[in-house]
């Protein structure tokens, strides 16, 4: 057991847990932050997608020992706090397009979408069909067409 400190959704947290435990389990099982979902544990389904220092990552595939005290993790629960509005524009777009069915994949989908738009913007371009085709997040309810629409709407307001 060892002690690990990092910033979670804007607040400094310290957990006592074995260093090899993946961050997903630290969030869910130790800290009770259940927005990031388990769908595979091997960085395939992307249901756990969250942000580290503003970039998308999959906490099921990173040991907690990789974190340092100033690393900032944002989960879906903290996404709205990264903007001045009530919700993040991507969350508003998700509601506008009524994307969620069961909703299980959606925290990961939204976190991935935000990172994708940020990345594309940083490259000085707009979301293209090929960017949407490249999203790996699985949705077993098949909400993919509305996800594509919502990302385009969210992009307009980001």
């Amino acid at each position: 057991m060892s002690s690990h400190t990092f910033v979670l959704n804007g607040e400094k947290v310290t957990v006592d847990v074995e260093p090899g435990v993946r961050i997903l389990w630290v969030l869910r099982d130790v800290l009770g932050v259940t927005g990031p979902k388990y769908g595979c544990g091997i960085n395939v389904c992307k249901a756990c997608t969250s942000h580290i220092n503003g970039k998308a990552f999959n906490p099921c595939s990173v040991p907690v020992s990789e974190l340092s005290a100033d690393d900032e993790i944002t989960t879906i629960e903290g996404l709205a706090d990264t903007v001045d509005t009530d919700l993040h524009p991507m969350q508003d777009a998700w509601i506008e397009h009524d994307v969620a069915q069961c909703g299980y994949c959606q925290p990961g989908q939204i976190m991935a979408a935000v990172a994708l738009v940020n990345k594309v913007k940083a490259e000085g371009r707009a979301i293209a069909e090929s960017d949407l085709d490249g999203i790996r997040n699985l949705c077993r309810c098949g909400t993919y067409p509305r996800i594509r629409q919502a990302i385009r709407t969210g992009e307009q307001h980001m």
């Binding site: 869910r28 259940t34 879906i76 969350q91 994307v99 969620a100 299980y104």
Partner: peptide
């Protein structure tokens, strides 16, 4: 959906 906001904010609770 009536649970749309919960679904996009991570508040929606599943069994686990």
């Amino acid at each position: 959906r009536t649970d749309a906001r919960d679904a996009v904010t991570g508040k929606k609770k599943f069994a686990m």
